[in-house]
């Protein structure tokens, strides 16, 4: 029986593994963390769009199904790929060496480190938090009623001041912020909730639920990118231009939420190196080669739904390859 190793147990890796096992291949999966589920589980999120379910609700059943049919190594990474062509001899950090006929890379992304954008005051200004922190607060029911909240879009995305590798869009931030803004508005009807944007990218059906609805229910969208956040009287003050009015402005809020961008994970960069795969300007994996398939966000940013679908699609490509070779 043909063997496949899936690297990364996030949404894309899990769905690829499940599909390949279902198609009758012998599948291994290696995941660096102790828990399967990828970024959504690691960052202990509250709710995932468009499902509006918690990460556990959404991804645990998938992980359980995978564990039944797939040999899973958690807490381990790929250490070396010993052969250049298939079959691949892969050594893992837990001492295991596997011989497989194909590799599916699904090593995903990591969140941008907001301390790099000093002007936005993370860790410097009271009341500046990340979107993941806000989710954790919501999940644990820790958030006290705020007078006002501002979502700051594109922190670590679309920003060449961070270097030439930061031109890309995170693709989840606008919808994610729209979902949380709406949630806040519903929980705390008298709170003033703002979204500061350059463009709102809630593509396809996300537009209605995560842009139109929040607007209708009182979330105020301001067209201007936040240039600076500093502290005044213990509160964050946002500096921005309301570009539709053409007016430079300041706004004091209780909570400023940084909507963090995503970038290739260390694992993604490492595997690209190990397998000498081309990376694009942002460091995402930009090519496949014989026996090596790339799934999910490690080749460019996808939403969760897209990552799940892409995992399946990649599995199918791998399966066709594996069948075409021998049968």
């Amino acid at each position: 029986m043909k063997k496949v190793l899936v690297v990364g147990g996030g949404p894309a890796g899990l769905s690829a593994a499940e599909a390949l096992a279902g198609l009758g291949f012998e599948v291994y999966l290696v995941e660096k963390e102790d828990k399967l589920g990828g970024l959504p589980v690691k960052e202990s999120r509250y709710k995932l769009f468009p499902y509006e379910k918690s990460p556990e609700e959404l991804l645990n059943p998938l992980a359980e199904r995978v564990k039944e049919k797939v040999r899973v190594f958690t807490g381990a990474e790929v250490e070396a790929v010993l052969t250049d062509r298939p079959p691949f001899d892969v050594r893992l950090t837990n001492g295991e060496t596997l011989r497989v006929d194909a590799l599916v890379l699904a090593t995903g992304v990591k969140s941008f480190d907001p301390t790099r954008k000093g002007e936005l005051g993370f860790k410097l200004v009271n009341g500046v938090v990340t979107n993941a922190q806000l989710e954790a607060m919501l999940a644990r029911n820790e958030l006290k009623e705020p007078g006002s909240v501002a979502f700051v879009f594109c922190v670590g995305s679309r920003d060449l001041q961070l270097g030439p590798s930061y031109a890309h869009c995170c693709s989840y931030g606008c919808a994610h912020a729209g979902m949380l803004a709406l949630e806040l508005k519903r929980r705390f009807p008298s709170a003033r909730v703002y979204c500061f944007y350059t463009d709102v990218r809630t593509c396809s059906t996300l537009e209605r639920r995560y842009y139109l609805l929040p607007q209708r229910e009182g979330v105020r969208y301001v067209r201007g990118r936040v240039a600076r956040i500093y502290e005044q009287n213990g509160k964050p003050v946002l500096k921005f231009e309301d570009t539709l009015l053409g007016r430079p402005s300041e706004l004091a809020v209780d909570l400023a939420v940084l909507v963090l961008g995503l970038e290739p994970s260390e694992g993604t960069k490492k595997l690209a190196r190990l397998l000498s795969l081309k990376q694009d300007e942002s460091g995402f994996i930009a090519e496949e080669r014989e026996g090596v398939f790339v799934a999910g966000s490690c080749k460019g940013l996808l939403t969760l739904q897209e990552a799940l679908t892409d995992g399946k699609a990649t599995a199918l490509r791998a399966a066709l390859y594996l069948k075409g070779e021998k049968t």
């Binding site: 480190d113 790099r116 000093g118 961070l162 270097g163």
Partner: peptide
């Protein structure tokens, strides 16, 4: 920062990507 080379928070790898990063530069915003 394009001239001052103040990219104080870039990682080593990123510093290479930022061609004029200068280790000795002060913080870019603070």
């Amino acid at each position: 920062r394009v001239f001052s080379g103040a990219y104080p928070h870039a990682s080593k790898e990123e510093e290479l990507a930022v061609p004029y990063g200068r280790e000795t530069a002060d913080d870019d915003e603070h």
